[in-house]
């Protein structure tokens, strides 16, 4: 028994050594940054335009993706957030939200966990400013005040999943093993120096090219870690249990970035390429007579048989 325990301990120790520091320049948990007090401050902190000078193609691709306007959405996300507040939060007896002035960062995290994870670096005033901006945009649109609607839409669209959300804030998943993302480092596929004043270092993030990375948002289902779990994206759960477990081996990145040729313009059902990659559909049609019964006699029928085959790594549709 002792031997078994010893072997177990040494295997664990090897795993721990292997996992820590071997791939990644994560480090100790950095001090939390000062809370952003306005949307403008939060947007400036995660501004992707500084990356554009060197990474023009990737930036251009990203700019066309929903990640670049993750709160505005198609633009159905922003109105859905308002619906979640009015038909959810305000009606829930224990949410603490009866009016917009009661909204906090925590109130919005069941949307923002994925649509704006950096909101946890902002004050409750920013959460309320986001809600007020969306309401103002809806009102201006309804009243035909196009200039104001455009201005507010631009403000909402400035809240996004930008470069440094993926390549810094969310870059390292196993923080105890691989360390915490460092505030001066951009995480990707290379180590070394990075020609940027704010982020002078580059480091490899072990999971950035793996499906688990995307699974942080395109997730497993209800966010059970929240006081009010919301049922949202289940793509990674579906990927694990209905695709990988049945022999599938492609990663999210392989299909959505590489095989599609879309790179950082990660698309789904709104893109013709992704639709073609997603499904095989075959249709057979013929005519037959059906001898139904004595009373109703023979019925002439067209018989249409449709065979649908989902070639993706998750259920369709999903988010």
């Amino acid at each position: 028994m002792k031997k078994v325990v010893k072997i177990g301990v040494s295997l664990f120790a090897m795993t721990a050594l292997w996992a820590s520091g071997a791939y990644c320049a994560g480090g100790p948990e950095p001090a939390a940054p000062a809370k952003a007090k306005t949307i403008k401050e939060l947007v400036a902190r995660y501004d992707s335009s500084r990356c554009m000078e060197c990474h023009e193609e990737a930036h251009e691709q990203w700019d066309n993706s929903l990640h670049s306007h993750s709160i505005l959405g198609t633009p159905r996300t922003a109105p859905t957030i308002i619906t979640a507040i009015d038909k959810g939060l305000k009606l829930f007896p224990y949410s603490g939200v009866k009016e917009d002035k009661d909204i906090t960062v925590e109130s919005l995290m069941f949307c923002a966990k994925c649509h704006l994870p950096q909101l946890d670096e902002a004050t409750d005033d920013v959460a309320r400013e986001i809600v007020a901006t969306i309401r103002g945009w809806q009102k201006a649109s309804k009243e035909g005040n196009e200039d104001l609607a455009d201005e507010l839409e631009e403000k909402i669209a400035s809240l996004n999943i930008g470069c440094m959300v993926c390549h810094n804030k969310m870059a390292i998943i196993h923080k105890w093993a691989d360390g915490y993302a460092q505030p001066d480092t951009v995480y990707g596929s290379q180590d070394g120096d990075h020609d940027d004043e704010k982020f002078p270092k580059m480091a490899k993030a072990p999971a950035l090219g793996e499906s688990i990375f995307c699974g942080q948002c395109h997730g497993l289902g209800p966010n059970f870690e929240l006081d009010e779990p919301s049922q949202c994206a289940t793509a990674y759960g579906s990927y694990l249990y209905a695709y990988v477990a049945h022999g599938g081996s492609d990663s999210c990145q392989e299909c959505h970035m590489h095989k599609s040729g879309l790179g950082h313009d990660m698309q789904a059902y709104n893109d013709e390429t992704m639709i073609k990659m997603a499904l095989d559909v075959k249709v057979e049609a013929r005519s037959l007579f059906w001898r139904k019964n004595k009373e109703e006699g023979v019925i002439p029928k067209g018989i249409i048989k449709v065979d649908l085959y989902n070639k993706t790594g998750h259920v369709i549709p999903d988010g």
Binding site: G248, K301, G302, I304, L308
Partner: peptide, 30 residues
């Protein structure tokens, strides 16, 4: 199924599973 909303296990869900064939048959009387 319509997006992630119908994937709680509580609502009817008709999404297409990965790597599986789904057959639909329609009969249209002349």
């Amino acid at each position: 199924g319509r997006g992630p909303y119908e994937k709680s296990g509580l609502l009817a869900e008709t999404s297409l599973p990965p790597m599986k064939h789904v057959h639909e048959r329609f009969e249209i009387p002349y």
